[in-house]
Design a protein around this nucleic acid. Structure first.
Length: 286
DNA sequence: TATATCTCCTGCGGGC
DNA sequence: TGCCCGCAGGAGATAT
């Protein structure tokens, strides 16, 4: 499941292999992959043809290719299973190939997405607080790896929320890039149960949690991201290794690396949360 | 306005 | 062997 580190690995791959190319032609093979491009797949393909790729950027889990001429970008979200692959034209088409772009370099940029939660959309670049962003990304908060990330104001924003802390750090308008895996890992590192109300945490606790979020995502990035199966790969189709370093996520009944208690799994927001019953006691009353 | 829940989707694994 | 069901989860839409 691509979260910030995985998306950053993909962005770096696109910067190395796609930026500097021109898009010659685009084939949209599944309408859901372009559902956020309101004018449809034919329009997307027609508008992209002939444009040059001049940059690859990211905020949180969104990435985009900056295009020229014109202040346009193709915004990409990988959803749960999206892959951006750079392939030779002779390579066999992937089973879940959704969008195909032929580049003047002779390579193909392929968007492969089994579960079709991801997609592409063409959007204008707008100015948001002095930063140029594609319009669909304008509401997304800065992520912890952003040089302009303001930890003090994010701590205040988190503590102003009445929801549970895990729900708040998954809210991409508060801080971006965090998904279920790294939320569980950061909460485990900090010893905080995800059901604790955000507005009951102290400033030092929230600051520590933000530090853990940054730390765990930086470590994951250094290892090429987290991968559980073939669904997450970089542009060359290679998987990361961080899943071997996870302490809580996906480790139900296995010993907590800190205290040895069996990791528990609980339902939360229609998905699973993993935590240590000793290191992360439930808030009173739950 | 803030918060909570629902929905979309596909492949896999378990149970019968 | 085949069918059914639950599970995985990001984020926009909808409900409270």
């Amino acid at each position: 499941m691509p979260e910030l580190p995985e998306v950053e690995v993909v962005r770096r791959g696109l910067e190395a292999h796609v930026v500097g190319s021109r898009i010659d032609a685009v084939e949209v093979l599944h309408p859901r992959a372009v559902r956020r491009h309101l004018l449809g797949g034919d329009d997307l393909a027609a508008q992209l043809a002939g444009l040059g790729v001049v940059g690859a950027s990211r905020r949180g889990k969104y990435l985009w290719l900056e295009l020229a001429p014109g202040d346009l970008a193709v915004v990409v979200h990988l959803g749960m299973s999206g892959q951006m692959l750079v392939q030779p034209p002779a390579a066999p088409r992937e089973k879940h190939l959704r969008i195909l772009a032929n580049l003047d370099s002779g390579s193909q940029l392929r968007f492969v997405d089994q579960r079709t939660f991801g997609g592409w959309a063409l959007a204008p670049i707008v100015d948001v607080d002095g930063t140029a962003l594609p319009e669909p990304v304008a509401h997304i908060a800065r992520d912890p790896l952003d040089p302009l990330f303001d930890a003090d104001s994010v701590v205040a924003a988190i503590r102003a929320k009445g929801s549970e802390i895990k729900r708040v750090i998954l809210d991409q308008t508060v801080l971006s890039g965090v998904g279920n895996i790294y939320a569980d890992e950061a909460l485990w590192r900090t010893g905080i149960h995800g059901n604790r109300p955000a507005d009951r945490l102290t400033r030092p606790q929230v600051r520590l949690l933000l530090g853990s979020v940054t730390e765990v995502m930086s470590e994951a990035l250094a290892q090429g991201g987290t991968s559980f199966d073939a669904l997450y790969v970089n542009v060359n189709g290679e998987s990361g290794y961080f899943d071997r370093s996870l302490s809580a996520y996906g480790r139900e009944d296995r010993p907590c690396p800190r205290c040895g208690a069996p990791i528990r799994r609980e339902k939360f927001m229609n998905r699973s949360s993993y935590s240590c019953p000793k290191c992360q006691p439930r808030p009173r009353g739950l």
